Amino acid sequence: MSTIATRAAARLLVPVLASACLIAPAPQAHADGDGASFVPAAEAAKTEAAAHPATSTKHEAEKKAAKKAAKRVERVMSTVRSRAGKPYVYGAAGPNAFDCSGLVQWVYRHVGERLPRTSGAQAGATQRIRNPRVGDLVFFTSGGHVYHVGIYAGGHTIWHASRPGVPVRKDRIWSGSVFYGRVR
């Protein structure tokens, strides 16, 4: 059977089969040069959403949650960058001087999240994860104890307040004795 005859037969059979199955044919937007028609993605999505409202609502909720998470990460990173160059002072929690956990606590407080004061307590307040995303926390350990924390900046780097004489800055992760946590 020729291609033209196959297409003609298909155009005749689709409405018959659709009505037999009690399914309305999809709206046709326009035809291309060979007479075949297609439905734009937006119209297909509307048709799918009408047919499966629970799935559509779930998908929209997931998109909304992802957008909210992306905005939060953006706020975390812009907030920590705004502290670049501020001095390290043991026990300081901002806004003009920080130690490591004070910086993390201050940044997350400014995006609406409450974290404990020390790096060990912050480790206990986060969900442990394997694959960090920008904005997650990086905990450095020695002898089974957390001794330092920073905010993951991607590319194996962190923002942190490291030690006296070194201001808040972005550095490469220097140790393999780390684990990652996500603020819940």
Results as ranks from 00 to 15, higher is better:
Gly143Ala: 02
Pro87Thr: 05
Ser175Ile: 03
Ala9Arg: 11
Asp136Val: 06
Pro40Asn: 14
Val146Arg: 12
Pro40Val: 08
Val39Ser: 04
Met77Trp: 01
Glu43Leu: 10
Gly91Trp: 04
Ile151Val: 14
Pro167Lys: 07
Pro164Ala: 08
Lys86Cys: 07
Pro87Gln: 09
Ala93Trp: 01
Arg128Val: 12
Val107Ala: 04
Pro15Asp: 03
Val149Asn: 10
Val16Arg: 15
Pro132Phe: 07
His148Ile: 05
Ala161Ile: 05
Trp159Phe: 13
Gly85Pro: 04
Tyr152Asp: 08
Gly35Val: 11
Trp174Met: 07
Ala29Tyr: 14
Phe140Glu: 09
Ala20Pro: 00
Arg169Asn: 12
Thr3Val: 13
Leu103Tyr: 06
Gln28Asp: 12
Val166Pro: 02
Thr47Leu: 15
Thr141Glu: 09
Ala51Tyr: 04
Ala24Arg: 11
Lys64Cys: 02
Val178Ser: 10
Arg172Glu: 13
Ile4His: 11
His52Leu: 15
Val168Lys: 07
Glu43Val: 12
Tyr90Phe: 11
Phe98Pro: 01
Ile129Asp: 09
Gly154Cys: 05
Gly94Cys: 03
Ile129Arg: 10
Arg83Asn: 03
Val80His: 00
Thr141Leu: 04
Arg81Thr: 05
Pro95Asn: 05
Leu22Ser: 15
Pro25Lys: 06
Ser82Met: 04
Thr157Ile: 02
Met77Tyr: 01
Glu74Asp: 06
Gln105Gly: 03
Ala9Met: 12
Pro164Arg: 06
Ala45Phe: 02
Val104Ser: 13
Arg169Tyr: 06
Gln127Leu: 14
Gly135Ser: 03
Arg172Asp: 11
Gly154His: 09
Ala44Cys: 00
Ile129Trp: 08
Ala8Thr: 13
Ala26Gln: 11
Gly135His: 00
Asp34Tyr: 15
Val14Lys: 08
Tyr147Trp: 11
Gly155Cys: 01
Ala24Gln: 13
Ala10Pro: 00
Ala49Asp: 12
Ile151Ala: 08
Ala31Tyr: 15
His160Trp: 07
Thr118Pro: 07
Thr3Asp: 08
Glu113Asp: 10
Arg182His: 12
Gly155Val: 01
Ala26Cys: 04
Ala29Ser: 10
Tyr180Val: 05
Asn131Ala: 12
Arg133His: 09
Arg72Lys: 10
Gln28Val: 15
Ser56Ile: 00
Val134Asn: 00
Arg182Ser: 01
Pro167Leu: 09
Cys21Arg: 11
Tyr152Val: 05
Thr79Asp: 00
Gly135Glu: 00
Ala65Leu: 05
Ser19Ala: 13
Gly150Leu: 13
Ile151Met: 10
Ala10Val: 08
Lys68Arg: 06
Ala66Gly: 05
Leu17Met: 11
Ala70Val: 00
Ala41Ser: 10
Cys21Ala: 15
Ser37Thr: 13
Glu74Pro: 01
Tyr152Phe: 15
Ala9Pro: 02
Leu17Arg: 07
Phe140Asp: 07
Ser37Leu: 11
Leu137Pro: 02
Glu62Pro: 00
Ala20Asp: 07
Ala5Glu: 14
Thr57Met: 11
Phe140Trp: 13
Tyr108Glu: 03
Gln127Gly: 03
Glu62Leu: 11
Arg75Cys: 00
Thr6Val: 10
Phe179Glu: 10
Lys170Ser: 04
Ser175Pro: 03
Phe38Asp: 04
